[in-house]
Design a binder for these strands. Structure first.
Lengths: 109, 109
DNA sequence: TTGACATCTCAGTCATTCTTGAGACATTCT
DNA sequence: AGAATGTCTCAAGAATGACTGAGATGTCAA
């Protein structure tokens, strides 16, 4: 099961650094329990802040902070509810989500 | 393009927190430029520490530290070179890599 | 054996990020 | 209008994680 090792002598010192910036950014957003939970919950459809805060056991201002980061990254967008505009309903931007997944797949293969 | 919002009144306060622990762990490992670069380079086959350190422009002990974390997570394994056992050649554990990708896909969909 | 090389470990320092708390704004209800 | 609700912002404290530096281990070459 072990791969063949390169012929010696001499390690290759001419390798170039791979471009992983986009994957790293995507991973950083997913590396927080609250943000990952948000993105997972939004797979099932839009939710407002208070719903997600209650489900995650987090304060609403904290969830709002994380949503701001996801918004700035373009992964989610918000819109007020038609019938009761107090509620901000969040939904995923599936194109951006897909781009993030592609970037991660570029690293994991 | 906007999804339908749930009927009001009343946000749902009975939602449960999704289990994202594995995805968060995988993302945390990928959220560092050095570790992501390592995993990307190892897609092309095994490399020793000094090769990767040179390519990434990082010190060897730093790369070694990151490799230790990837090793403890089971994503890579090391073996000494047959002809020159000074070199530790690292390769990916593709099964573990796939598991990490599956966990991330569980969040991103 | 001695010296050079490749790698590893670990503690200390530094930077980044998360959470909290207080306050502000907009919307709805009475 | 005033009170209550849902959300947002931002500064400050708390926690987490990366990098450095020094030293130790194991391997090869002279």
């Amino acid at each position: 099961m072990r791969a063949d090792l390169p012929v010696l002598p001499g390690p290759r010192l001419d390798l170039s650094a791979p471009d992983v910036a986009r994957a790293v950014d995507a991973a950083a957003l997913l590396s927080d329990r609250t943000r990952a939970g948000i993105l997972r919950m939004l797979r099932d459809g839009p939710h407002c802040v208070c719903e997600m805060a209650a489900a995650l056991g987090e304060r609403e201002n904290n969830v709002s902070n994380h949503l701001a980061r996801l918004r700035e990254a373009g992964l989610v967008r918000a819109s007020r509810h038609d019938a009761n505009a107090r509620f901000q309903y969040y939904e995923r931007d599936e194109a951006a989500i897909k781009a993030a997944g592609d970037a991660l797949r570029g690293v994991l293969g």
